[in-house]
């Protein structure tokens, strides 16, 4: 809580936030309202596939939980806290809100470009994770954040999809998934490139407002 009021005071002072960096000793380093890019976040990757069945091998079934404010992963033991904002496992993305979560978060998928999405409209309706099969961000090809292209055996993030996220403690963020394959190759070879590695960019607004630029 200490941190948030600190950040807000800076926002109110009207500084050019983009050029600002905080290196105070007693608070974590945070650059608010600046797009961050996270590369190669593992989302329960596989050690291979069962050659006969094609089923993934070596998965743990656990989500990789992520804190957007601190731009870092959170241990699974903290899953019942507000420390995490989004979680990744395979193509499934979860948020910290709903019947099966502890926080008050939510999310929806906006169609448009990341840059153009500057403010969360007040009319926006956020979905929540109500059950393992009823998630705020639908985990199905063409209906959430990705398309599965069966002939090419490719999972590609749908271009022009912005995940609008409300965190467990009521802050807003926008996120665009850029790649599902390790090192985000320009041309993915599904036989060679490892999947379940997220590259995404996001903007987190720590002051609780709906402005995201």
């Amino acid at each position: 809580m200490k941190f948030n009021s600190f950040a807000i005071s800076f926002l109110l002072s009207g500084l050019a936030l983009g050029q600002w960096a905080c290196n105070t000793d007693d608070t974590p380093a945070v650059v608010p309202v600046v797009a961050q890019t996270v590369r190669n976040l593992p989302a329960d990757p596989t050690t291979g596939v069962n050659p006969t069945t094609g089923q993934p091998l070596g998965t743990t079934g656990r989500f990789t939980l992520y804190n957007l404010r601190d731009n870092k992963t959170v241990a699974n033991t903290d899953s019942a806290t507000n420390k995490w904002d989004v979680g990744f496992r395979g193509t499934t993305i979860i948020v910290n809100g709903g019947a099966i979560r502890s926080g008050q978060g939510g999310a929806y998928v906006h169609t448009g470009t990341f840059e153009e999405f500057t403010t969360v409209p007040t009319s926006a309706t956020f979905g929540q994770d109500q059950s393992a099969t009823s998630l705020a961000i639908v985990a199905a090809s063409g209906r959430g954040w990705y398309n599965y292209n069966a002939p090419a055996n490719l999972i590609t993030p749908i271009p022009g999809r912005v995940l609008v996220i409300r965190t467990g403690d009521g802050k807003f963020a926008k996120m665009e998934i850029l790649s599902y394959y390790e090192n985000a190759p320009t041309t993915v070879d599904p036989n060679r490139d490892r999947q379940r590695f997220y590259t995404f960019r996001y903007v987190y607004q720590p002051d609780g407002s709906m402005k995201l630029n």
Binding site: T113, F114, I158, P159, G160, L178
Partner: peptide, 15 residues
């Protein structure tokens, strides 16, 4: 204006 492509270099979406 609802259809986008992803720039293979920058990976950002464009209309």
């Amino acid at each position: 204006g609802q259809l986008f492509s992803r720039d293979p270099q920058t990976l950002s979406s464009q209309r």
